[in-house]
């Protein structure tokens, strides 16, 4: 461990702003990729379910 306490770790030898800003931006962008992909997945699955239901209803009636 290079840091003796949490305050030192967040301070990053005075460069905390730059280090945490880079890691923060990266985290947010990657998280956005995952969330957007997941939401699209849900929407597409729902659509296929709907199509299947319509087919079912059509064949029963």
């Amino acid at each position: 461990m290079r840091f003796t306490n949490w305050a030192d770790f967040f301070n990053m030898g005075g460069h905390g702003f730059y280090v945490w800003l880079s890691y923060g931006v990266t985290f947010i962008l990657l998280l956005a990729c995952i969330i957007l992909g997941w939401r699209r997945h849900q929407i597409l699955i729902d659509r296929i379910r709907r199509i299947a239901e319509q087919k079912n209803n059509a064949s029963h009636s």
Binding site: F3, M12, Y18
Partner: peptide
């Protein structure tokens, strides 16, 4: 972020390399 050494010139801002 926590265990690698800092750079002798850049100090801890060097840690940005691990994502850059």
């Amino acid at each position: 972020l926590a265990f690698a050494p800092p750079d002798y010139q850049q100090g801890d801002s060097f840690r940005i390399i691990y994502i850059h």
